[in-house]
Each structure stands twice: as C-alpha cells, then as structure tokens.
C-alpha cells in the first residue's frame, strides 16, 4: 500500500513538472503581442448635485450625491492598431432640497455606457484614446409631496456620443503613475418623457400611442457633457484611483426643462487583469494596460 502511494506521488510530481515545463515552453515561443490585458476599477463617489426638472417642481434642488461605480477597459489589437473597449457602470442616489428647505427630492438611477476607443499613441507614454460611446441612463426622480405627479422617470438611451480619454503614464523610480481624463459628449439619443403636464397614467390607456413618450433628440434638445479626471497611484500591492467627475446635462424635451450639474470626488481601486492566454504569456514589460 505504502509503495503504491509512493509511486502515485511520483507520478503526480512528474505530470506536474511536465505540465509546468510545457506551459513555460509555450510562453517562450509565443508572440508577446498576443497577451491581452485589461484594467478594472471600482469605487465610490460622493459630491454635490444641482437638479431641476420642471415636471416635478419649478425650483432648483441642491443636495448630496453618492454613487458606486465600476469600470472595465480592455485592449483589442487589430493588426498593428490598438483599440480599447470601456464599460462604465454607475449606480447613483441623490438627496436634494430647494433653498427654502420645505421638501425633499431623491433621485435613484443607473448609468451604463459602452465606449470604443482608437489608441492614438502620440508618444510611448502618452496615449490619446479617441472614440464613441453608447449607453443608457435609467432611474427616477421622486418628489412625494406632489399628488398626481410625484415621479419623473429618467430614461435616456444615448445612441451616440463622442468620447476622448487622453492618458499619460509617468514612471518614477519604482512606481508607475497614470493620469487620464475622460471627456464624453452626448450627440444623439432617445429620451422617454411625458409631455409638459402629462401624467404617466396615459401609458395605461390602450388607445394611447406609447411612442409619443419617446423623443429622438440631438444636441439642440439635450446636451450632456462629462469630464472625469483620474489619477492612479500604486500603493503596495494595490493601485489607488482618485478622481473628480464633473457632469452637466441640460434638456428641453416635450417642453419639460431638465438640468443637472454634478461634481463628485471618486475614490477606488484598480487592477490589471489578464485572460488565461494572457496570463500564460504574461511578459514583465506589460505592467499596465497602456504601457
């Protein structure tokens, strides 16, 4: 019995050694360009928001906003050109009051965006990512002191927007610090909105053409601009991401005036990840997604 166990252990050891050796061989013979890298980041945001939606109130509301955000950026090489896809998701909640502090409004919404960038390598350390994005925002503004119109549904599908993300990588003695600034500008989309003083009750009427709630719009009707400045600082084994998000949107759809200005501080962590193929072919040169 003891001999069988001993032989078994040797067998496992030999198999493990061969497997490890073979993968090393594969890694050495593979083209390092096939290593596929991505970067994930997640964290919290908090700041101030100024919001106005004439459907609920003619006043301007101010308050604190909190959000959970996460972001995944992935490199995709086509020939000698690099492209990046970026998925951004933010879940926000905001509590606001007008200056008279007589009532309060709360907002809950989710923003999901998909960006596609072309990597324009201006210098080895400075990458200008230029591209477009699409995404949606879904949520609601709640003002329960209103009787028949306590809710305004925030539903906006951004069909197309411009997106830029200049990124600068600075290597100090032992650390790599990454600066990036993401600018997004919505060009066109579809917004779900009632008309002026229309109530959502109309949606329950069979005869009502529900598409009247939809409005295809461009810059002239709705403009949304956001700027996210970020810095990534390696901290022991993790990378800290600090940022500042400025967002401004203004729309006049179905004669409902809607304005939002938001400034937030972002704190989070980021890390590079490899797919299985990339992990096997990992090269020490690839310390960050942009380098």
């Amino acid at each position: 019995m003891f001999l069988i166990c001993l032989k078994m252990r040797k067998f496992v050891f030999v198999i493990s050694f061969i497997f490890f050796f073979l993968t090393t061989l594969l890694a050495q013979t593979s083209d390092s360009a096939s290593v596929r890298l991505g970067n994930r980041a997640f964290g919290l945001g908090f700041g101030r928001e100024r919001h106005h939606v004439s459907f609920l109130s003619p006043l301007l509301y101010y308050g604190n906003t909190y959000e959970f955000w996460n972001e995944t950026i992935k490199c995709q090489s086509v020939g000698k050109r690099d492209f990046y896809s970026l998925v951004n998701n933010r879940v926000s909640m905001t509590y606001m009051m007008p200056t008279n502090e007589s009532t309060d409004m709360s907002s809950y919404y989710d923003v999901f965006e998909y960006h596609h960038f072309y990597d324009w390598k201006m210098t080895p350390k400075f990458h200008m990512l230029c591209g477009a994005y699409t995404g949606f925002e879904f949520g609601a503004d709640l003002l329960f002191s209103n009787s028949n119109n306590p809710i305004y549904i925030r539903a906006d599908w951004s069909l197309l927007g411009l997106s830029f993300r200049p990124t600068l990588c600075v290597r100090t003695k032992r650390r790599l610090i990454k600066f990036s600034d993401q600018l997004d500008l919505r060009l066109a989309g579809i917004v779900f909105s009632p008309t002026y003083t229309q109530l959502y009750y109309d949606l329950t009427l069979e005869e009502y053409d529900k598409t009247e709630f939809l409005d295809f719009n461009s810059l002239s009707e709705k403009i949304r601009f956001s700027n996210k400045l970020m810095i990534e600082l390696p901290l022991r084994r993790t990378t800290l991401r600090l940022g500042m998000l400025f967002e401004r949107s203004k729309s006049m759809i179905h004669k409902i005036d809607n304005r939002t200005t938001s400034v937030q501080a972002l704190v989070g962590w980021s890390y590079d990840y490899y797919n299985i193929k990339g992990r096997l072919n990992r090269d020490s040169r690839f310390t960050t997604v942009f380098e």
């Binding site: 003619p58 007008p98 008279n100 007589s102 009532t103 028949n148 003083t197 009750y201």
Partner: peptide
C-alpha cells in the same frame, strides 16, 4: 386631472392640468 407644483417660499399649489 390635478397636477402639483410649488412656490419659492415653500408653499405648494395643486390645480387642474389635463
């Protein structure tokens, strides 16, 4: 159908809108 709005002083108003 009543609709609500508010005044800068904090008072609220309800009126027929539709």
């Amino acid at each position: 159908m009543p609709f609500s709005t508010e005044l800068p002083c904090g008072w609220r108003v309800r009126f027929s809108a539709n």
